[in-house]
Amino acid sequence: MIGADVSHEVRNVLSVIGEYAGLLDDLVGLADKGRPLDHAKLRNLSTNIAKQVRRGTETMERFSRFAHAADEPLASFDLVALVENMVALVQRRAALAGCRVQAEFSPPAIPVRGDPFALQHLVFSAIQAMLESLEKEEPIRVKVARRGPEAVLCVSGPAAGGEPSGRISEQLSAAVDKCRASLETSLADGVLSLVFTIPIQ
């Protein structure tokens, strides 16, 4: 799913660059007919193309980080950076679902020794489960923090009509087991929270 999302995003970037290239072509065509080149327009176009190239590069860098997580089943990595990368990669998917995902954490890093790909899958599955279950337009909040010898990942959002958390727990059980994590769900004041406890070592 992430691969398809990234491919869509990159194709969108290329489409925008394609239209800018077309605009440049139109300007050159007009210059060929004797109209002076509009330097301000040219500068604006080059700025916009550079912006799209940055957007595409960032997406590909994030996707590369995501894909390389599968290189080793056991690795040392920063959980904060991993979760931040996943939150960025799901934004387009969330936007299409009429929602956004808000990362509410910052460094320091949480060094973890484990299976990074399995953890990425867990983060994605949790966000996807929330996207399918929650009231739209309200953001899904993702928090990660260290708690003693463990890390705690919390994904929460406003539940639609008391979303059955049992169904979500069942849906996520394989991903949770793969990370040797545990999951607690809670529904309070209309907010559904998925709290994962993840071993650091």
């Binding site: 489409s15 239209e19 139109d26 916009n48």
Partner: peptide, 15 residues
Amino acid sequence: DEPEFTEALSQRMES
């Protein structure tokens, strides 16, 4: 929903 795309293509069609 891509504002940059709509802006650029609009300009090309308008011209």
